[in-house]
Simulated scan of single mutants.
Amino acid sequence: MTDLASRTIFITGSGGVLGSTYVRQMLSAGARVIASDLPGARAEALQDAHAGNDRFRFYELDVSDEAQVSEIFGHILADGWQPNVVVNNAAITGELLMGAGKPFPDFADISVTDWERTMRTNLTAPFMIARQMDRDIVGRWPCTLINVASMYALNGAHHRIYDGMPFKNFAAYGVSKAGIHGLTVWLAGYWAHRGATVNTIAPGAVFNNHSEEFQRRVGELIMLNRMASPDEIAGVMLFLCSPQAGYMTGQMVNVDGGFSAW
């Protein structure tokens, strides 16, 4: 198991399938974990799961709110925690944006409002988190930023696998995830002389109660012929958070079962 005893990790969007798995595995590896998410059922479940763990801390945070982002590290530092790893994990997917039971639009019907809301959360928010790191953390002690992209960041979506499904691949999601790696490589050079590294993790298709038919269609595009479990993605995330990844910066690590290697 990766040893994260020397790490204090701040992670946005901690209440989702991957986020909650990251938190659980980070705590198991010995890290101090500062979790954040929007208020609601996911945040409450996360806090309940780790109640009483003195290496766990939770803050409500809307990453799309500039005022909240500008204050978050001040709150964390005032409480005596010094994050040396930050994970930009919060994101809006197409399914989340449209909401349960709401019809998923064709590309021609996507509103500018929905496009801009996705970009605000998936790309502008990571920029704001990184900018606040620059103001409050970078240069004060060695630190690491990990941006979370997607298998669709630098690869085109296979639109046919969504035929007849209740959801489709959302253009703004893939575009925003491509942009986040641009942020990674820019920051990697900008922060290199200040003791900070920046990398991107690009998870593949993660199983989250998908239908057997959708699993079959996706599996045909993947060398390993199946979707990933959240724990398989989290294992690589833990390595990127660890001191063992100290000589890596400006890199994208694909954890996609071979999807991007075809």
Rank of each mutant, 00 (worst) to 15 (best):
M1Y: 10
T2P: 15
D3M: 09
L4C: 11
R7Y: 02
F10S: 02
I11N: 06
G15K: 05
G16A: 07
G19D: 04
A31E: 01
R32D: 02
I34F: 00
S36A: 14
P39Y: 01
P39H: 06
G40A: 14
G40Y: 10
A41T: 12
R42Y: 06
R42W: 01
Q47K: 15
D48Y: 03
D48A: 15
Y59M: 04
D62H: 04
E66W: 01
A67Q: 09
S70N: 14
E71S: 14
G74W: 03
L77S: 13
A78D: 14
W81A: 15
W81M: 15
Q82I: 06
P83F: 01
N84L: 06
V85F: 10
V86H: 07
N89L: 00
A91F: 08
L96Y: 09
A100P: 03
P105H: 04
V112W: 12
T113F: 01
D114A: 09
E116I: 02
R117N: 13
T118E: 08
T121S: 12
N122C: 03
N122M: 05
A130L: 07
A130R: 02
Q132S: 13
I137A: 02
V138P: 01
G139F: 04
C143D: 06
A149D: 01
A149N: 04
A153T: 06
A153R: 08
N155V: 05
H158V: 10
H158L: 06
R160K: 13
I161Q: 12
D163Q: 13
N169P: 11
K177Q: 04
K177G: 02
A178K: 08
I180Q: 04
G182E: 12
L183K: 10
T184N: 12
W186C: 13
G189P: 10
Y190W: 13
W191K: 04
G195E: 03
A196E: 00
A196V: 03
V198L: 09
N199E: 09
E212A: 15
L221E: 09
L224M: 12
P230W: 05
P230S: 08
I233V: 14
C241A: 14
M248C: 14
M248Q: 10
M252S: 10
V253P: 03
N254T: 03
D256H: 07
D256K: 05
G258A: 06
G258M: 06
W262G: 15
W262M: 12
